[in-house]
Structure formats: structure tokens, C-alpha cells
Amino acid sequence: MSGSDPVIEVVGLTKSYGRFPALRGLDLQVERGQVHGFLGPNGAGKSTTIRVLLGLLKADGGTVRMLGQDPWSDVVALHRRLAYVPGDVSLWPGMTGGEAIDLLGSMRGGLDETRRTDLVERFELDPTKRGRQYSKGNRQKVAIVAALASDVELLILDEPTSGLDPLMEAVFQEVISEAGQRGATVLLSSHIMAEVETLADRLSIIREGRIVQTGTLKELRGDVRTTVRAVLERAPAIDELSSLHDVHLDGDRLTATVESTRIGEAMTLLTGYGLVSLTVEPPSLESLFLRLYEDEQASAPTGTTTSGETGTAP
């Protein structure tokens, strides 16, 4: 399902800070119109990748193309077509939020007046405060409004909602969906799983400077089993439940996992024992993410409890 119209195309990207290799051969592909989730633990290299994409850092190796152009040499042409929200916004102390929005917008080549007004209103932003007087979340809103008020093809968002309250988080998700409907491509780095789950069409997961998983949410979930919890009228014998995995029976209480494709089959099986109550839990992104860590950190000294929702023990 590749290659139709990649907006971001990164192959074998490497970047070191001094002698520390932050990116070690990163491949990333984002198609036009996609909202692409970019996930990974702290220090994995998300911000570094984004800063290379923006031409703020010079790549050591590999190729990077954005909108068919080179982010290092075609800066100006490229940046007219994209907008960026950093995760840690620092505003000019004496400048008001409104002024900062206009400054960034016009430097990008103009902003859409009606959308600007609309966004300021929806995010309940007071544009007359000065840089230092904003709270963290409000600083973040200034950057979001500045980026989204321009009509651009590509949005690059590095933990854009860090510090937003749940209400504003909802507004943000709405606004990004609208951008997606307009046909904008979005690269969204985030630690908020719910946000990524709602917004992202595809995900890439980065660890220690490499992409370790990429695909649609469905694809990534594919090999993670759904958890089934049931209370039954009659306790079954373990060997009668061969289509379930990780079966745990405690009297009439059953906990097990099942492949996403075989849920119907499992239901039929369990109905035979008389269902008193039933919960079916699809694998959350959270559990997926934790499992990916677990796999990679198998050798690392543990102290973490990942006795997660799925209860898998492969």
C-alpha cells in the first residue's frame, strides 16, 4: 500500500549529537492526507527527527524528502507549505500572544483571517496578554493557533497538546480532524494515546533512533489479542477451551485472550456454558505500546509492572 504520494520520505536517517547517536538509520514514510502518529519513549529521537525535517538540524546521513523537496536546502519554499508546533513553547516576553500569532503567520506567508478569529475563540485564548504572563497551556495554545491559522499542506506537531486541559484537548482533536478533512497531512508526535488513537490513520513507533513498528492502528493491533472476561453458569474444563489463549479459571470466573479474528467463535463457545456477564476489551494502544517496550527491554533490569490489561504472557 505504498508509494502513491509520500509527503515525508525518510530513508536511513542518522544524526549524532557529538558522539551520541540520536538517530540510527530511521525510515519514515507519510502519505498525503494522512494523520501520522509518531510515538516513542522519552529520548527516542522524535524531536530530533522533527528538527531534521524542519531543517533546523543537518542530517549526518540518509535521505530526507519533504513535499518532494530537501528540508535543508529548500527551506523557504518548503516552509511556506508547512506549519510547526513545538512541545515547549517559548514566547517573546514583551510581545502579546496576538502579536506572536501574526508574526509567525505572516512570516509563513500570510494567515487566514477568519480561521484565526475562529481558532482564538474556540481555544478561548486571550491575545492581549504578554509572553511571560501566559500559563503553560495558554502558551501552547498560542503556538497551535499560529500554526493552524495558516492554510498549509503539512502540519508538524511535536507533542502539541502537552499542558492542555481535557476541554482544550477535545477542541484540538476537532481542529486537527478538520485539517485532515481539508486534505492536510499531519505528523503528530505525542505521548497521549487517546489522542493518537482518535486522530491517527497510521502510526510509527520509534525506539533508540529507529522505527520499530509502523502501520495502521488495525495492523498494529492485528497480532495483539483481545481480552475476554466472563462469569459463567457452568465451569468448563480447560481442555474444552482450545480456541482461547492464556486461559485463567477461578471457579466460574474466566479470563482469557483471543485473536481479534476469532472473537465470534469464542462467543459461541462461551455461550454454551451460560454467560452471566461478559467484558470484551480490544487491545488499547497503551497495551500495544507497553508490549513493544517489554519486548525490546527484555534484557533490561526490570522494576516496571506491565501486568497490563491484556494479561498476556507469551
Binding site: 514583551g94 502579536e99 512570516m107 496578554k129
Partner: peptide, 21 residues
């Protein structure tokens, strides 16, 4: 403490930003 400022900005170029800063 400075009071509230303008809601709209007039500094819209790199030059004006440099002067402003």
C-alpha cells in the same frame, strides 16, 4: 507590571522582529 497589550501584531517581517527584539 506591564498591562495588556495589542491583540493584533504589526511586526510581520524578519526586519521588524529584529528591531522589536
Amino acid at each position: 507590571t506591564p498591562g495588556p497589550g495589542p491583540a493584533r501584531g504589526k511586526d510581520t517581517t524578519a526586519w521588524r522582529l529584529a528591531v522589536r527584539l
